[in-house]
């Protein structure tokens, strides 16, 4: 039985550990923190499984591999809401919606009535919207906790320090792996969680804006996660300007957000390679899984599968980088 050690218990590490256990490996997970929490950038994720929308700016593998995500998370027993995504613009940016439609697939344009029927909360606020019916979302913190507890229940050891010997190590440390992957960089994202029980949005909504793009993800219980900032920086500081932008954009999406309770503000830096695509690679007995950028929950399932396959049959999957191996 292969003894595998996974470094890092963020979304990448937990997905890799899950795939390895499924293939009969004896797995241990090394992470300084005992449980998923605010120390890792997965904690601050939006949890949108939106491969088609991401295709607007991301390259083709993100769209294709991301389509595995919703099914994978469901098979692990994680609650996945398959209610699609809505994309809207404010009046004077309406041509942005046509551009977004041109650059993506898997959508249809809704008129005002169809939008009102689908998401009554937006009735009368937007005269049209792009609807991506096959997209989904999940609660990232619940998903991380679920994987972690199930792995522990299956005998996976979680420890702050490496224990016994391992045949293979899977380095899923994210930005912390810059010691061995020097072309990793941090891309900062900021988020806020609001509680606005009177707003009854049931699916993620993206507001296109040339300067202040926004997404709003329902988290249930009247809570909404706001996000979208993307800044070339590895700092984890919560800056006023970004929060102002997020909150202003949310207010423009729906004025009732102005009365919302501000539950949480977070910021973290996500690991990215220069092409913003994830990479797998092997160096000795270590397989690297890194650079998931803003696509952690979307791409970790596919990357985990590919890493486990590479380990078991020696194949070199796509996104495999020799210079890391």
């Amino acid at each position: 039985m292969t003894r595998a050690r996974v470094l890092g218990a963020g979304v990448a590490g937990l997905c890799v550990a899950t795939e390895l256990v499924a293939r009969g490996c004896k797995v241990s997970v090394v992470d300084p923190a005992p449980r998923p929490g605010p120390h890792g950038c997965s904690w601050w994720a939006g949890g949108m499984l939106a491969p088609f929308c991401e295709g607007e700016a991301a390259e083709e593998p993100v769209v294709r591999l991301g389509r595995e995500a919703a099914g994978w998370w469901r098979r692990q027993g994680v609650a996945v809401e398959g209610r699609g995504t809505l994309v809207v613009t404010l009046g004077r940016d309406r041509r942005e919606l046509d551009r977004f439609a041109r650059r993506t697939e898997g959508h249809r344009m809704l008129d005002e009535a169809a939008l009102a029927a689908l998401e009554p909360e937006l009735a009368g606020r937007f005269d049209r919207a792009l609807y991506f019916p096959d997209e989904a979302h999940l609660d990232p913190r619940a998903a991380l906790g679920h994987l972690r507890d199930r792995l522990a229940g299956e005998g996976v050891a979680f420890a702050a320090e490496p224990g016994g010997p391992a045949d293979l190590t899977f380095d899923c440390r994210g930005l912390a792996a810059r010691d061995v992957l020097p072309d990793l960089r941090g891309v900062k994202g900021e988020m806020a969680v609001l509680r606005a029980p009177e707003i009854r949005l049931t699916r993620p909504v993206r507001l296109l804006h040339p300067r202040f793009p926004l997404y709003v993800v329902p988290r249930g219980d009247g809570r909404f996660m706001l996000g979208a900032t993307q800044i070339e920086s590895d700092e984890r500081v919560r800056r006023v300007r970004s929060v102002l932008e997020l909150l202003s954009a949310a207010y423009a999406l729906h004025p009732a957000f102005g009365e919302a309770e501000l539950v949480e503000i977070g910021a973290d830096a996500r690991p990215a390679f220069p092409d913003n695509l994830p990479r797998l690679g092997r160096r000795g007995d270590t397989i690297h899984v890194n650079g998931l950028f803003r696509h952690g929950f979307l791409l970790a399932p596919a990357l985990a599968r590919m890493a486990a396959e590479a380990a078991s049959d020696g194949t070199r999957p796509e996104l495999w980088h020799e210079d890391h191996g």
Binding site: R185, G186, K188, I231, E232, S233, D234, V237, R239, A269
Partner: peptide
């Protein structure tokens, strides 16, 4: 930012 956080870019 602080500590030249954008240095990698």
């Amino acid at each position: 930012g602080g500590e030249r956080a954008g240095a990698a870019f």
